[in-house]
């Protein structure tokens, strides 16, 4: 408590404010501090905005074919050049961002929901439920995840909705573990005890009293998971088992460009660069979030 007051003074916050309000100010004041995080947020915002507005900002249609320009390098008409079917690469890059981000977002959403549910069950109920969930976590941490992902993706036929399902189903373990640990320690807290003694039922105890406290590590894990999911999707696409063309993703654009590496190296450079930049930004944002949410401890790697 003394430390919190001290920190409040350092950040220029009146420690006498009610705690919730203080924490809110604390959050924003801490959030705006590091410059790299700010730039990362701006870049992510730009990337997301351009991807969402894809049909408005792209010079050509997604699958429009320009037969006069096949496999060309950069030119005034086609800033990044064209692919082997004469499709404008800049256009496909922007649309690719749309699908790549969508897949990553849905994957993380699925993983987070699974992780939250199982982690809560294990941590709150304990006993047999805990054994089951811990066993499942153990099992999933004992399979060669990427090989199994590949196998599942090869069965699935690479549709837009199967890939996030597969990625989500194999990346919930970290979240489940974190939530379980949070719930285990929260169960002993006095405010939980107090709420329980006041006759608060289990549902509102979990959702109103305990879950909000367990959320900050989950949010951090989700941001890292987003970058992870993007990398996995692109890796699957690169091996030919991700989202299938003609839907463009940065991964399958890269796979496509690999064949013509000698002729149009830019076509291979651009999508990978976008993946890299986006992941980089997300990592910085997650770093900032970790700091802002006060999630300290050994996991700060």
């Amino acid at each position: 408590m003394a430390e919190a007051g001290l920190q409040g003074r350092i950040w220029g916050i009146d420690p006498s404010l009610p705690s919730m309000q203080r924490r809110r100010i604390d959050f924003f004041s801490r959030c705006t501090v590091p410059k790299p995080v700010f730039f990362a947020l701006v870049l992510i915002f730009l990337i997301v905005a351009v991807s969402l507005l894809a049909p408005l900002v792209t010079p050509y249609g997604r699958d429009t074919i320009d037969l006069d320009h096949i496999l060309t390098g950069p030119s005034p008409q086609h800033i990044l050049g064209t692919d082997e079917l004469g499709r404008d690469l800049l256009t496909r890059l922007i649309f690719g961002g749309r699908f790549t981000l969508l897949v990553a977002f849905v994957s993380v959403a699925i993983a987070t929901v699974i992780g939250l549910t199982l982690g809560t069950l294990a941590g709150y109920i304990g006993g047999f439920a805990d054994h089951l969930v811990s066993g499942a976590v153990d099992l999933f941490l004992s399979i060669p995840v990427f090989l199994v992902l590949l196998l599942a993706a090869s069965f699935s036929g690479g549709r837009l909705w199967t890939i996030p399902l597969i990625i989500g189903a194999t990346s919930w373990m970290e979240t489940a573990r974190l939530v379980r640990a949070e719930f285990l320690s929260l169960k002993g807290e006095e405010f939980v005890e107090a709420a329980r003694s006041m006759g608060v039922n289990a549902v509102s105890l979990i959702f109103k009293h305990m879950l909000p406290h367990a959320l900050s590590p989950v949010i951090v894990a989700a941001t890292v998971g987003f970058a992870q999911a993007m990398l996995i999707e692109s890796a699957l696409s690169f091996l030919g088992y991700g989202v299938q063309p003609p839907l463009p993703t940065w991964g399958n654009m890269l796979q496509n460009a690999q064949i013509f590496l000698r002729k149009t190296p830019l076509a291979a450079f651009a999508p990978g660069f976008m993946i890299c930049i986006t992941c980089l930004c997300i990592h910085y944002v997650s770093e900032g979030l970790r700091y802002a949410l006060g999630h300290r401890g050994h996991e700060t790697v």
Binding site: A227, F238, L254, C276, H283
Partner: peptide, 22 residues
Amino acid sequence: STVGMSVPVFWLGLMAITVFSL
């Protein structure tokens, strides 16, 4: 190290092939 965690391995490989081999 942040770049190392963000960069797709296959892309880095392709770029390395482009630069060092091609």
